[in-house]
Design a protein around this nucleic acid. Structure first.
Length: 271
DNA sequence: ACTGGCTCCTGAGGGC
DNA sequence: TGCCCTCAGGAGCCAG
């Protein structure tokens, strides 16, 4: 489900209510997520006030004085505020009871998500330490991307989806950004002309910013902390549109599998 | 160092 | 209605 815009939308949805509030109890109904939910979360999180809710790539970080809760939504995870008395839904795996009497529940049908705890600097956590720059930061520049693409024979699309190169760009937004930049997803990363990198970096930024602005993309069931969908789907130009006319040139949108992921592009507009 | 392929899991949707 | 197949927005891990 969630790429950077959806995770950021989730963060913005939950941060105002969580920040400054204490976590009273945590209930782990189903610890079998991507990795087992560690005992340390249940031991150390209760009683801690949440100082801030941050995001690094697609990870959410809830900081407390005693440690940081690391949360990844995987493909199908979501967070939702509820009342503690509300019946548990299928795939509600974890609940945080809050000082204000409410609760935050983590729901994840596919259980590719993760909930971890670290008492160290989260930036040094094994899952975060090797991550590339944030795409909306200055560190993600045309020069940087060109340098990382140099000599690589891998297609540009899977390269953009590699978190060690740049974080947060998933399957939808990689296709959309490449369409906007006029670059074929199958083009070898190392064979992209230098002059095209500024365009590509700008396209990635633009598409992510527009998606955050719209509250994310709801293809199936994404919703923010209040249960509302995202509206970026209306601005999608190629993703999921195989065989339909390109919104720019009218030719048919093509699709193929690239690195085990479905990929969409317009052969007329993208070279 | 790169590359491509496999894997975890449940659910939805299409074809028959 | 039911069965079987394919696919799904992530990403760590492995062999070659």
């Amino acid at each position: 489900m969630p790429e950077l815009p959806e995770v950021e939308t989730t963060r913005r949805g939950i941060a105002p209510r969580l920040t400054g509030q204490q976590v009273c109890t945590i209930t782990v109904r189903e610890p079998r997520l991507r990795w087992p939910v560690p005992e340390s979360v249940s031991r150390q999180l209760p009683g801690q006030p949440i100082l801030a809710v941050e995001r690094r790539g697609k990870y959410l970080l809830a900081r407390t004085p005693g440690g940081t809760l690391l949360l990844h939504l995987g493909m199908s995870g979501s967070l939702r505020f509820t009342h503690p008395d509300d019946p548990w839904r299928t795939h509600d795996h974890v609940e945080l009871r809050l000082e204000d009497g409410g609760a935050l529940r983590f729901n994840d049908p596919r259980r590719f998500g993760a909930l971890l705890w670290t008492t160290d600097d989260p930036a040094c956590h094994p899952l975060l330490a090797g991550l590339g720059p944030e795409p909306l930061s200055e560190a993600f520049s045309a020069d940087y991307l060109q340098q990382r693409a140099r000599g690589r024979r891998m297609a540009i699309k899977p390269l953009l989806m590699d978190g060690r190169i740049v974080v947060g760009v998933g399957n939808i937004y990689a296709s959309e950004a490449l369409f906007r930049a006029g670059i074929r997803p199958t083009r070898a990363a190392g064979r992209i002309a230098a002059a095209r990198f500024p365009l590509l970096v700008e396209a990635i930024r633009d598409v992510l910013e527009a998606a955050i602005e719209a509250g994310g993309t709801t293809l199936r069931d994404f919703h923010n902390g209040e249960g509302k969908p995202g509206y970026f789907g209306r601005q999608i130009q190629v993703y999921g549109r195989a065989g339909q006319p390109c919104l720019s040139c009218g030719g048919p949108v093509k699709s193929a599998r690239l690195g085990q992921r479905s990929t969409f592009w317009c052969p007329g507009c993208q070279r």
